[in-house]
Every structure is written in structure tokens, then in C-alpha cells.
Amino acid sequence: MTLSTNVAIGKPHNVREVFEFCRGLLGTPDGTPVREGAGYLDERTKRIGNPIGIGLPALLDITYGPDGPLTHRCDRFCSTELGGEFDTTQEQIDDHTRYVAESPTQNGWAAMIVDFDTAYGWRGEGGETCSDLHARLVTALGQWLDARGLPWKWQNEYTGEWFDRYDGLAEFGNAHRATGADAWFRNQVVPAIQAHAAVSSAVPGEPTEGGADR
């Protein structure tokens, strides 16, 4: 299980410059290879990121539109598909239409999306949780974007809500303690993982647990 936090940037900017700044935030070692390919939204988008499994506190990916802003590619939930081959209800279409209209990654607002992804059980110095870490990363990236006059929003994955700039970050960083999620992870998830690991250790060739950045 991982916490994925997206930061949407509302104006075009040099993607490599954003990438290198975020790499620095994570302490990426010099000479670390760059992972590039198709973006996760659709075939029109591209992606640049860090390799998986290099021991950093978060996996870093940036999705961007090389030819313009990120926009929605119509699918079976769009109104144009009503009455087509899929059994889609009007309620589903209405919900989907609302999602596309409100999401900066779908409605043409964003030029790129920065994604920090951290294992839910990650802990840093002083007991820092993944929520604390992501609030800190978003704040630092936001200050860097502000200095360059770039508008930005971020998404709370726990609720799905998008926020303008620093709104909601304090509550987000405190999410583990305020909601009891930290106690839930320690008391239920960790024992389950340990039990699974104990069983897996007896099976030849069973994969082991990965690092913070998967």
C-alpha cells in the first residue's frame, strides 16, 4: 500500500528543471538513471521519473503533455458513449462528467503532474510518517514554483480533494495521528505483513519486501 500525492502545475515549464529540483528534494544520488516513457493518463502524455527500488523516501514520476495541457480522453463514461456498447448508467456519466470538470489533470488546467509515491509504512527520523513527508515535499516544491510564478494545486489522496497551493497541507501532514491511521497500521497492518513474511520465508524463491520507493 502506498500514498500517492499529486501536484498539478498550471503553466508550461521546463520539465527537466522541475524533475531535477524534485530529485534534489528526495536526495537522489548523482548519476542515478532517468526513467522515461509514456505518461499514465494516455498515449498523448509522456513521463519522466526515478528508477524503482533505489532506496529513496518516495518514488518520483512527472507526467506532462509535450504538445499542450493535460486534457481528458473521452471514454465509455462520457456522454457521447451513452447508448453505445457499454452498459453505462446516466448516474455514472454524470459523476464522470463532474470529475472531468473538477480535476485539473483532466480539464486542461495542468501542464504537468508531479507524483510522490511512498510506502504507507515508511517512517523517517523522529517518527515522520508518509503523510508528514509528502506535506513537506509539497510545501518545498510549492515554494519553488511560487518563486517562478507558476500556479499549482495538490491532491489529498485520502479524500480525493484538490487544494489550491498550501491549503489543507497542515491537516494532511497530521492525517496519521488525527484519524488514527498510524495506530491502525502498527496494530493491524504490520502484524499481517510480518505473518505473511514468516510464511513466505519458508517458500523457496518467494520475493522479499521492497524499499520505501517500491
Rank of each mutant, 00 (worst) to 15 (best):
Q92R: 05
L70N: 00
G210K: 11
I113H: 00
T129N: 04
G211Q: 06
P104E: 01
F163C: 09
D213M: 07
D115I: 01
M1A: 10
V199M: 12
P207A: 01
D87I: 11
V15R: 02
Q90A: 15
E157P: 09
E128N: 08
E125W: 06
A101G: 05
V203Q: 12
V15Q: 05
G121I: 13
D30F: 10
G83P: 10
V34N: 09
T5M: 06
N6F: 05
K46D: 08
A198Y: 06
D30N: 09
G55H: 09
S103E: 04
G65L: 03
W122A: 10
F21C: 05
E81I: 01
I113D: 02
L145D: 01
R136P: 07
C22G: 09
Y99N: 06
A178H: 10
S79M: 13
E17T: 15
A58K: 01
A58V: 08
W154N: 02
N156V: 04
D146I: 12
L141T: 10
G24E: 09
G180C: 09
R214G: 14
C130H: 05
N107I: 02
I52H: 11
Y158M: 14
G55D: 06
L137I: 03
T129K: 03
L41H: 06
L26G: 08
G83A: 11
G53A: 10
I48F: 04
A101R: 14
H13N: 11
V18Y: 02
D30L: 14
G49F: 00
G142R: 08
D167F: 04
F77W: 11
R16N: 10
G127K: 03
R73H: 12
D182R: 13
R76Q: 14
H176V: 06
E128V: 02
D42H: 05
T89A: 06
K153N: 01
